[in-house]
């Protein structure tokens, strides 16, 4: 298998996902198949090739240092699952 169950769990933790035990094996199989497929890329010689991260051929896109205010705090907090009208509230960060 391209990837171990332990690795699947580690990745899940990195991604802040909690996997039920039954799913771990399923994902392991699926990931292994997918990663196996991706091995294809090893066939190509890319030694001198400059990576292309985005097809946008733009450079130096800026904005001026100006302050603009569109929305007030109420709107920013509108969708907050837990708030006191001032802060976003979460369980205590140790």
């Amino acid at each position: 298998m391209k990837i171990t169950k332990e690795e699947v769990k580690q990745i899940a933790t990195l991604a802040r996902l909690k996997l039920p035990e039954e799913k771990v094996e399923i994902y392991q199989k699926q990931f292994s198949a997918i990663l196996d497929y991706m091995e294809k890329l090893k066939e190509i010689d890319t030694k001198e090739v400059n990576p292309l991260y985005s097809p946008a051929e733009l450079k130096n896109v800026f904005r001026e240092d100006e302050v603009k205010k569109d929305l007030d705090r109420e709107e920013i907090l509108k969708n907050a699952p837990k708030t006191d009208g001032e802060f976003f509230i979460v369980p205590k960060i140790i």
């Binding site: 990745i11 990195l14 996902l17 990663l35 190509i44 090739v49 990576p51 292309l52 991260y53």
Partner: peptide
């Protein structure tokens, strides 16, 4: 999860960077 994997330490060059080169 797969996306996290291909970016993670040790795999970035083999997957992410490689894919960008093939792109």
């Amino acid at each position: 999860m797969l996306g996290t994997y291909v970016l993670s330490a040790g795999y970035y060059d083999a997957y992410y960077k490689k894919a960008a080169q093939v792109r």
